[in-house]
């Protein structure tokens, strides 16, 4: 039962990803794309979790946490870029 559900869920997430990809490509603004990318990252995390169940292995559970971290870093970088154009400031107090 679980396997079937997982496969259904996988397809759902994949469909969601394609939809998000449409947003990434279409835009129309940059923030739109980044929002979609961020959501895409979240979907990937979900997918990894589902694949873990599907393969019945805990080998990839590290990936989940790691990807959570990285998606965050990526989003921060993008938003800083959008806002300031430079993502690492030399000295923000000056």
């Amino acid at each position: 039962m679980i396997q079937t559900v997982v496969y259904i869920a996988l397809i759902c997430v994949a469909v969601a990803m394609i939809t998000l990809l449409y947003r990434v490509i279409k835009g129309p603004t940059l923030p739109d794309r980044i929002v979609a990318l961020d959501a895409l990252g979240v979907n990937i995390v979900a997918m990894v979790a589902l694949v873990c169940i599907a393969l019945d292995t805990n080998a990839f559970l590290e990936v989940i946490l790691l990807f959570g971290i990285l998606a965050f870093i990526g989003t921060v970088a993008f938003s800083k870029y959008l806002e300031k154009g430079v993502i690492i400031e030399n000295d923000r107090n000056s």
């Binding site: 965050f72 870093i73 921060v76 970088a77 800083k80 993502i87 690492i88 400031e89 030399n90 000295d91 923000r92 107090n93």
Partner: peptide, 8 residues
């Protein structure tokens, strides 16, 4: 991340 949040 530290660099992003703070500065060099």
């Amino acid at each position: 991340l530290l660099l992003l949040a703070f500065d060099m």
